[in-house]
Each structure stands twice: as C-alpha cells, then as structure tokens.
Amino acid sequence: MSNPHRVVLLAGPSGSGKSYIAQQSGLPVLCLDDFYKDGDDPTLPIRNGQIDWESPDSWDAEAAVEVIDQLVRHGRADVPVYAINEDRRVATRRFELASSPLFVAEGIFAAEIVGECRRRGLLAGAYALRRPRSATFLRRLARDLAEQRKGPRVLLLRGLALLRAEPAVLRRQTGLGAEAARGRDVLRRVAGLLAAGHPPQIG
C-alpha cells in the first residue's frame, strides 16, 4: 500500500526566506534546524578552534530522515525542540499531519537528505531558494539580532562570511538534487502537486 503523505524539502542559504515560504504554502512545516547536534556532541566539526555550525556535520541527518519517514508513513512523530541560543535540544513535541498529503521540511541542510528521502520513496519535491544576496544578508542579520542568537559582532562577522559563501552553498544544494527556484515558483509547484491529487513518488 502506498504511503498517504510525501515531503517537500526546502533548502537555501541562511536567511533566504525558507521559513516564510514554507508557512506561505499552507502545509504543515517541519523545521529541520531542530535537528542540530547538541553543543557538547564530540562529533561536532571544529574550524579555527570553533564549532562550525555551517557544516552539514553539525546536523543530525539520520535523525531528520527517520522523523520524515515516520511522518510519511504514519502522519505523526515526536520531534526535537532545539534552542539555538543554548546550542542544545530542550524538549520534544508531537508533530501531526492530519489529512494533509504533503508537508514541508525546511532548513539550510535540507538538500543533504534529498537522496535518502528519494531512495525511501518519501519525496514529492526538493527546492533550494534563490534570491538576491544582499536581501538575504539583511534578512538574516535582522532575524539573528532580533532572536539574540549570538552577540551583535559575532552575528555581523558570520553574516559577512555567509554572504561570501552563498554561491557555493547554492551550488552544493543543487548538486545534491534540490532545484534552484524563487519563492513564488516553489509555491506554484507545491500548489500544482496538491491540485494533482495524491502526489506521486519522485524517483
């Protein structure tokens, strides 16, 4: 029997508007940032003496895929709640899809699991948000300052580094199987999947 649900993976550089576009879709949204590793995890990557939170190795891809698998097959799963300002998981919560045939899983590392989700028959689509770099930089800095994720100087330096790295980030995400698209195009394609009825497996 086919699974009743499918996932739409939404990647893109930090600050590109993934959360906003995911919410605009009207679908249930799984935040993949909640699958970061805890700050004391010995497997965290180190760069220049500091934890490299921009590396996919700082993120628990296996746990994310297992939760997506449960959601696709059963429509519900327990998911972690991660406090970025504390660098750790602080709780778990119940996530349910109800009757929605699609849900969005969004995060900077979403493209890292495109291949595995496709292999397991979980995938409806995979996209990497593309927008002007200056807009992404300003959006990201305003968000991080408002959420007090780190000190202002740290956030500014991080933002400038991410600005320089953004083209490489998009190249990696598209290389992993996510299609580069503007936000409005992602929403149009998701609406098309819904209009077509039960979404087929992408494979």
Results as ranks from 00 to 15, higher is better:
residue 60 D to S: 07
residue 60 D to V: 00
residue 60 D to T: 01
residue 62 E to I: 14
residue 62 E to M: 04
residue 62 E to T: 12
residue 65 V to F: 12
residue 67 V to R: 12
residue 68 I to K: 10
residue 68 I to R: 13
residue 68 I to L: 15
residue 68 I to Q: 02
residue 68 I to Y: 05
residue 70 Q to Y: 14
residue 71 L to E: 08
residue 72 V to N: 04
residue 73 R to S: 07
residue 76 R to A: 11
residue 76 R to M: 07
residue 78 D to A: 13
residue 80 P to D: 01
residue 80 P to Y: 01
residue 81 V to H: 04
residue 81 V to P: 03
residue 81 V to C: 07
residue 81 V to G: 06
residue 82 Y to V: 11
residue 83 A to V: 13
residue 84 I to H: 04
residue 84 I to K: 03
residue 85 N to Y: 05
residue 85 N to Q: 07
residue 86 E to A: 12
residue 86 E to I: 04
residue 86 E to H: 05
residue 86 E to P: 07
residue 87 D to K: 08
residue 87 D to C: 09
residue 92 T to R: 11
residue 92 T to S: 08
residue 93 R to M: 14
residue 94 R to S: 14
residue 95 F to C: 08
residue 96 E to F: 13
residue 97 L to R: 03
residue 97 L to N: 04
residue 97 L to K: 02
residue 98 A to L: 14
residue 98 A to M: 13
residue 103 F to Y: 08
residue 103 F to T: 08
residue 104 V to N: 03
residue 105 A to Q: 06
residue 105 A to R: 10
residue 105 A to W: 11
residue 107 G to Y: 05
residue 107 G to D: 07
residue 108 I to D: 03
residue 108 I to L: 08
residue 109 F to R: 07
residue 110 A to H: 02
residue 110 A to V: 14
residue 111 A to I: 12
residue 113 I to R: 07
residue 113 I to C: 04
residue 114 V to I: 11
residue 116 E to V: 15
residue 118 R to A: 13
residue 120 R to P: 01
residue 120 R to Y: 11
residue 121 G to H: 05
residue 122 L to K: 06
residue 123 L to D: 04
residue 125 G to I: 11
residue 126 A to W: 09
residue 126 A to K: 06
residue 129 L to V: 14
residue 131 R to C: 05
residue 131 R to A: 05
residue 131 R to V: 14
residue 133 R to C: 00
residue 134 S to W: 15
residue 135 A to V: 10
residue 138 L to W: 02
residue 138 L to S: 00
residue 139 R to P: 06
residue 139 R to L: 00
residue 140 R to G: 00
residue 140 R to L: 01
residue 140 R to D: 00
